[in-house]
């Protein structure tokens, strides 16, 4: 099992974190997990909507010290 990829999108705004996640997913294998770090709360709400819509798995989504951590598993 490979390590979780971390995508540090702190400091940018919607849809920056989502687009960075998608670029990361395209370069990942099915089953890999990616963790997006975002200081933009809107992205923390929007990314799970996208994940649900396109059929990947939302593994975790939590806020810590002003940073949102959204963990996604590539499902297809």
């Amino acid at each position: 099992m490979s390590e979780k990829k971390v995508i540090d999108a702190r400091g940018t705004f919607c849809p920056g974190p989502l687009m960075e996640l998608i670029a990361g997913i395209k370069q990942s294998e099915v089953g890999e997990e990616l963790e997006v770090l975002s200081s933009d709360e809107g992205s923390a709400k929007d990314i799970p909507e996208w994940v649900n819509k396109v059929g990947h798995d939302l593994v975790d989504n939590f806020e810590s010290d002003g940073v949102w951590h959204v963990v996604v598993r590539k499902a297809k």
């Binding site: 400091g11 940018t12 705004f13 849809p15 920056g16 687009m19 998608i22 670029a23 395209k26």
Partner: peptide
């Protein structure tokens, strides 16, 4: 003034990623 994604980059990503 904020670090919003540049609109030109977003259009390019629409083509390249979507």
């Amino acid at each position: 003034s904020k670090n919003a994604p540049e609109f030109m980059d977003l259009f390019e990503q629409a083509v390249d990623l979507g």
